[in-house]
């Protein structure tokens, strides 16, 4: 098991390298130069060239890429922003806690609401409760995030004055972004829980458990839910991954100084190096959460744990079967 964890941690590195390469390549072929933008309209060609040389933007593809990675390894630095002249790592670290807090709370709340709701809907299938819950879930999943954010802002902040319009100067400012980020995951979690539970409840062993005379509560919570968990964990994992990376739209509307906002501004201002830094951090978060999700699979399902622990030829066979799941 430990070997599996270590192997996965090592696998993180090529993934991160890969994501950086992809985004770097996309940006490389763009012909908008941040040097020109920073220097302004009165700059001469020579000045633009000089600035670009200073930032290493005129070097060949591999040199730039190599330099980027070497800088990470040797100095632990992600470079300096072209536009703001501050270290990229510092800018990201200043903003990351805000995004993480919102993401964590949004994902946790959505799980805490979505799973029980889904279970309830599955147990009481085809009753009014089921229809209402499903309908609400679908509706929540269908509202575009920016519409929701704007509506909340107008109603809760401007008309009712209950919450601040934007920013996170007080804890009240966190409420609307959390709701905005949490609505879609609630929908997904609820629906996935419901369908997974429904599928599990139909299994024979549930019928056996009931026939044995076990209490309905035990049947549902101890037997059905545990077995239904795998797809639910998939969704929950995805939820955490997306939430922790920051919602670009809600951070833009509520003016949260977070990772999403930094991504947004770095893309629109062609601040390529900050863009790369954000991508790296976001990819790291996503991969890390995926790893944790996979570990939770192992904790929940001993068969999967066995797969992970297997090595060598057995691992390959297991892997093929696992992929088919």
């Amino acid at each position: 098991m430990i070997r599996y964890i270590i192997r996965r941690l090592f696998l993180l590195i090529p993934i991160l390298i890969g994501t950086v390469v992809i985004v770097f390549t996309i940006n490389f072929f763009s012909d908008i130069s941040p040097a020109r933008l920073v220097l302004g309209p009165t700059a001469t060609e020579e000045q633009v060239e000089a600035k670009e040389d200073e930032w290493g933007l005129n070097d060949p593809y591999l040199v730039q890429l190599g330099r980027y990675f070497w800088r990470i390894v040797s100095q632990g630095s992600l470079g300096t922003s072209y536009i703001y002249n501050q270290p990229v790592l510092k800018m990201i670290m200043d903003r990351l806690p805000n995004t993480l807090i919102i993401g964590l709370l949004a994902a946790t709340l959505s799980v805490m609401i979505g799973i029980p709701l889904g279970i309830l809907a599955a147990i009481k299938q085809n009753t009014a409760l089921d229809y209402i819950a499903t309908f609400l879930a679908i509706l929540c999943g269908a509202i575009p995030p920016f519409v929701l954010c704007i509506l909340m802002q107008l109603v809760l902040a401007v008309r009712l004055h209950w919450l601040p319009v934007s920013g996170i100067r007080s804890w009240l400012g966190y409420i609307m972004p959390i709701i905005a980020c949490g609505v879609m995951p609630v929908a997904m979690t609820c629906r996935m829980t419901r369908s997974s539970m429904l599928e599990t409840i139909r299994q024979d062993y549930i019928r056996t458990a009931r026939a044995k005379g076990l209490k309905e509560g035990t049947v549902i919570w101890k037997h059905a839910l545990k077995n239904a968990l795998i797809p639910i964990i998939t969704v929950v994992g995805m939820t955490y991954a997306m939430s922790l990376c920051g919602s670009i739209i809600s951070e833009a509307i509520f003016n949260i100084p977070g990772l999403g906002n930094l991504m947004n501004s770095s893309i629109s201002q062609k601040d390529y190096i900050t863009n790369l830094g954000c991508v790296l951090v976001a990819a790291f978060i996503m991969s890390f959460v995926t790893l944790i999700t996979d570990l939770i699979y192992a904790a929940v399902d001993p068969r999967i744990k066995a797969q992970y622990a297997a090595t060598g030829k057995r691992a390959r066979t297991y892997k093929r079967k696992e992929a088919a799941v």
């Binding site: 993934i15 991160l16 890969g18 994501t19 992809i22 985004v23 996309i26 940006n27 991954a241 997306m242 990376c245 919602s247 670009i248 739209i249 991504m263 947004n264 893309i267 863009n275 954000c278 991508v279 976001a282 990819a283 996503m286 991969s287 995926t290």
Partner: peptide, 10 residues
């Protein structure tokens, strides 16, 4: 591993 919106925006 790339968040969807970020990738689409880039």
């Amino acid at each position: 591993a790339l968040p969807g919106m970020l990738f689409a925006m880039t």
